[in-house]
Nucleic acid binder design. Structure first.
Lengths: 206, 206
DNA sequence: GTCTATACATCGATAGAC
DNA sequence: GTCTATCGATGTATAGAC
């Protein structure tokens, strides 16, 4: 790597070449299209033929961007968490930690019902045989640890307490999707659920 | 229907004929086989060819028992709730309503992690486009109302309180499956979660 | 990187004989 | 009710030319 020469098909890492940027841009367009399909046809409804048609590529050309369909799901997994981190980063959180945790929980339940396949891919085990690569899983961890910080600030001090928190948020989301899609029957329980959780944590030293 | 004669291919309704009994028995064998496949290959992994092979029928003969694959899922939906009602009916519940609710919740979380596809089919919206028929949905209602009775006995008096209860149970199940399959990381939080729920309900008049 | 062409498996569902 | 045969669509993935 100390060589002063660069082969014609190599690009220096630091400033991405036009070619590399274009490659990433196309990859991004493919991901967007995949999410679009998933939101109407479900995750299992993503067919490479349809996907290719949406981005004006031949189906086989997709393999220049993703080695397999699982690799596509893996990229979607990381992309989903990346977008989630980005979106929640834009929330203006209250200075009151309890209020902030309510905002975060409500945010997650709301976006879960607005983007069902993302909820399914990121928070459940929907696709048989799919497991994220360590690199993609790292993004999930990042999101989870951000949630842990918010929970700790609000007084959830133990692992068990945080597990209970994730279960409550996942449960509210899951029930909202399954039994009142498009509504707010479980979404409007979020504040109450967080109060319940924090009161319990304070009383029982979680 | 007041005719005294019966055509050769008709059977009186009251005592099921040998033929009708055999038909139901085969239908039941098909359902069992479908669950078996789902437990190893996932719900979407049920292929009518494989299913037929398991019960020593040709693939096309399945259509004598189910009009379509969705009809099969619909029968599985009702069968899943029926078995769930049967199994929970065998639990020896404590006389203490709070303890009994813990037992019921723990039962649901445990069987959900032991039979993942049943959890997915009954409690989530996994299969795109599938909705249970009213007849099958009635079985779901029966199960839900039994849960409501147990929750009410323990002091959950409102609809919102019961919705929160179902969210907590669904959330514990979902997290157990997704993030600790085969373990008990969320299962062991059940008692604590129910205490939290009931204390909150009593304090806040839910 | 992109294409056409195609391999090759599998799917749900139907036709028609017995 | 059961079978064989088959349809038509769809699925992922690869070969090879440009």
């Amino acid at each position: 790597m100390a060589s002063a020469t660069v082969r014609a098909d190599e690009e220096p890492a630091a400033p991405p070449s036009r070619r590399a940027r274009r490659h990433q841009a196309t990859k991004h367009r493919i991901l967007e299209a995949a999410w679009d399909i998933a939101r109407t046809e479900g995750l299992s409804g993503i067919a490479l033929r349809d996907l290719a048609a949406r981005v004006d590529l031949s189906q086989s050309s997709l393999y220049s961007y993703f080695d397999s369909k699982h690799a596509l799901f893996d990229a979607m997994f990381a992309d989903g968490y990346r977008r989630l981190l980005d979106e929640i980063g834009r929330v203006e959180f209250s200075d009151d930690p309890r209020e902030a945790l309510k905002q975060a929980a409500a945010f997650i339940v709301r976006v879960s019902s607005e983007d069902v396949p993302r909820f399914q891919l990121l928070f459940t085990r929907t696709i048989p045989g799919f497991e994220p690569t360590p690199a993609s899983y790292a993004t999930a961890i990042e999101f989870l640890e951000a949630g842990r910080s918010r929970a700790e600030a609000a007084g959830i001090a133990t692992d068990a307490g945080f597990d209970l928190y994730t279960a409550v948020v996942a449960g509210l989301s899951s029930q909202q999707l399954a039994n009142d899609p498009g509504g707010d029957r479980w979404l409007r329980l979020v504040d109450d659920a967080i109060d319940m959780l924090l009161d319990h944590a304070h009383t029982n030293g979680m």
